[in-house]
Every structure is written in C-alpha cells, then in structure tokens.
Design a protein around this nucleic acid. Structure first.
Lengths: 232, 232
DNA sequence: CAACATAAAATCCGATCGGATATCTGATTG
DNA sequence: CAATCAGATATCCGATCGGATTTTATGTTG
C-alpha cells in the first residue's frame, strides 16, 4: 500500500503543508528502479548517471542514496561509489528467516491482544486483495502478490504495538520483497491458507494460536524459498 | 572497544590503503558529542554551527548526520534541521527490552554453539576489565563500565553467527548506552555476577543454560533501569 | 500591556565547481 | 603474443554559492 515503507516524511495527518523535498522524489525514483530490477542486484549506481537521468544535481541524489544505504538496499564504497546490494545467498536467507522467526510470531501474539478493530479490518482487506489477484500477466501478478504480502506482515508488526519491532521488520521485508521479485518465486495458495489461520486467531484475540500460526507460516515460507538453493 | 560500532568502512584487514574520509572524522566528532552529552537529548544540531566548529564544509557534515540519522541517534525535520534523538520514555524503554529479550537469549544460545575459542577469550578479557574498573572519578567509571558492557553484549551477538541479529542489536545497544550515561545508572556488581553465568554456560558449550542466563540478565537489567521511571 | 505585523538574521536545500582517485583504453616492450 | 605501463576518461569527495524557508527580533497598534 505504502509506496515507500521507510524514510518518507510523515505528512499523513500533517496539519501544515511543507514544501516538497526534491530528495524524496529522487528516493522514490531509485527505489522504483531497484524494485523493478532495472538496477540488478550488485549493479553499480553512478551518481553522475543519475544526475543526467533525473535532471537534478548531486546533492539530493547523495541524500537519497544515503537513506537507501541505511535500509541496506545499496552499499557504498569509499571513492568507488554506490552499488545495489548483492543478492542474498543461502546463508544470508537462513539468517533472515532466523530473525523473522524470532520477531514475527511474537508480533502476531501481541497483535492478537493490542490490534485495534480497524487494523483487523485492514488486514482482512489485504487478505481479500491477495485472493482476488487474477492478473493475466504473471509477471505483474508476482508484484501484486508480493506487495500485498508485505502489507500483511507490516500491518501485523504495526499491530504489535512495538515500534522498534515494527521498524526492524520493515527493513527485513524490503529484502524479502526484492528476493521474491528476483527469483519469480511464485505465489502459492498455501500462503493464503496460512494467512487465514493467522487472521482468524487474531480476530479471536487468541495470542497463543496467532503466535503458533505465524510460526508455521514463516517456516513454510522459508521452505518455499529454500528450494531455490536446493532445499534445506 | 570499537569506537564507532556501525557505519565505518571496514578497513580492519584491508589490503589496500584508501585515503581517509573526512566524513568519518566528522561522524566521530558528532558521535562523541552525543555520547558525552555535550549535545543533550532533543537538542538542536545546526549544520552551520558544526561548519564553524569543525572547520569543514557542509558536505561531510550532512553525510555524517545522515548516517547518524540511520542509527536513530538524530532526527531530521525538513527545512528545520537536525536534532538529537529525544530521551527514551518508559514505553519506549519497555519496547527496547522486549526486543532485546527476543534476540539476546537466542544469540547467547547460538554463541554457545558457534563462538570460536578466541571469541570466548575476548569475552573473558572484557569481563575481567569490568571487574577491575576502580576509577576514582565515578563520572568516568560510568563511562568505562557502559563501554565494556556494550562490548560484552556485542561480542555475544557477533558470536551468534547471525550478522543480521548482530547489526540489529548493535543499533539498540547504542541507545542503551546513551540512556545509561544520561541517567548515571550505576554499575552494580549484580551485572558482573550475571555476566559470569553467561560466560560459564558458553564455555561449557551449553546453549540452553546460556540462553536462560541471558534471559535472566536482560530481565534484571530491565528492572534496574525501570526504577528510573518508578518501577515496573 | 498584550497581540499582531513586519523586518532581519539564521538556517536549510539544492546547484555548481575544482581537486583527487579509480577505472578503462591503448600502446609499448620483453 | 602476453604483460606492463602511460594517458584519458569517468567518478567521487569536499568546498562554495544562491534561493527558499523558518525563526527570532523589533516596532506598531488596540
């Protein structure tokens, strides 16, 4: 739902209108190029090229790249330049899921306790969206599913009431998102099934079941991705 | 031990000598001012002031501040400027310990399995250092203890073998560090006792006990800090 | 005396410029 | 023919400059 999950100025309910930041547009432009894989993982990112391409000076580009570096989406080498983060290898994907397994089940349990009713409604809306995705172009269907899945987990993390956990997971999911897009990991109906279990438990305000359901979902998700590297 | 836990170029075992980055020195200068509380929590940080004070141009200062923003140590408001992150309130400290409680016991358990022997030696060295701290100036003693404690937890996180968890915890500990310094939270001998239990379990390569010991340590630490806000 | 309007200073955002470094291309030599 | 070296190009790092905005200070008025 949100175009850029982290780093944008929170003008959602802002009462004062502030002039736009050129850096934000640059940020979104580069972010889009990364997500559309126009800039492939590991590919070099030249500041001067972006100057010519976007028609702005170096200053806002550096600022935007600096933010992207904080997210781990790009890496900087002194006197060399920026480059897109390299694709995750098997070990790194393992570590990522290890961390998700620690945080997300807990978040789901807390969400069952703390999440406001309107949050649950948003969750069901996203879930419904995922099921009705019948885009003819499979290439686009990937993107839509991945986007919705990201929102699903983001909503639960937010519903945990713990902002630190929410921020940490937001960072991780950006990489999951990118990984999925790169490998064309297909959206299985299994995920929808698992999501349904999680939502049901949260609706029942049953933290233990929500936690277990999320634990199962993360583990299944891990297995679905691990086959890319030749299984467990 | 490490002066700046995140964001510096890894020149540790670098074979090539690269010219120094002015941005790094600026980064360390501002970092020091934050840690010494010369810039108080919530205090405004003027770029122009730093230009005059450090004698460099805006460019490296903006770069350094951008990195500090990624760590959450400073916050930026468009057309207003940078300011030091506000001091944690009770709710935020609760969230911080909630997250630590999820990650650090796990890391300790993994460290019991994966940590190389030399890592354990480093751990014992830090532990010894913490016990022998008998600085006359209590103001300095705080700082030394906090520094060592940070190293202690950082070593264990690193020993877990999971880089993502290590990075996440490094970010959190920076804030714990700052919080402790601000409130002059005293170093108790209890912490040393708890640390000893953790080290013993890791040396025995006993993950379950290490995990439990860390869990206990985090909980005790939380209680020691919570009294600042009037207890649990 | 308080509140508002106006003016001045401080500050940030973005653009542009020069020096330094890395990388690429092509020629020379053993 | 391969390897090495030199020059040219591309790029980054840091400095400086102007416009836009915010904040503070001052003066005016009810």
């Amino acid at each position: 739902m949100a175009k850029s999950p982290i780093g944008t100025s929170e003008t959602g309910s802002g009462l004062v209108r502030r002039p736009p930041r050129l850096g934000d547009e640059v940020y979104n432009a580069i972010y889009a190029q990364l997500m559309s894989l126009k800039i492939p993982p590991g590919g070099r990112i030249s500041v001067d090229n972006l100057v010519r391409e976007l028609g702005v000076s170096q200053t806002p580009i550096r600022e935007a790249l600096s933010r992207l570096e904080a997210l781990g989406l790009v890496v900087k080498t002194h006197l060399i330049g920026y480059s897109a983060a390299s694709q995750m290898d098997k070990a790194r994907l393992q570590q990522l899921y290890e961390l998700r397994m620690l945080l997300e089940p807990f978040a789901a349990g807390r969400a069952a306790l703390n999440m406001p009713d309107e949050g649950i409604e948003a969750l069901e809306a996203v879930d419904k969206e995922m099921r009705s995705t019948r885009n003819d172009d499979p290439r686009l269907a990937y993107g839509e599913f991945a986007q919705s899945d990201s929102s699903f987990h983001d909503l639960i993390a937010s519903g945990s009431g713990n902002l630190l956990i929410h921020e940490t997971l937001a960072r991780l999911h950006t990489h999951v998102h990118l990984f999925r897009l790169f490998f064309h990991a297909r959206a299985t109906t299994d995920a929808n099934q698992e999501h349904a279990h999680i939502i049901a438990a949260i609706k029942k305000r049953d933290p233990a079941t929500a936690e277990a359901a999320m634990r199962d979902h993360i583990e299944q998700s891990r297995k679905r991705f691990m086959v890319i590297f030749g299984g467990e």
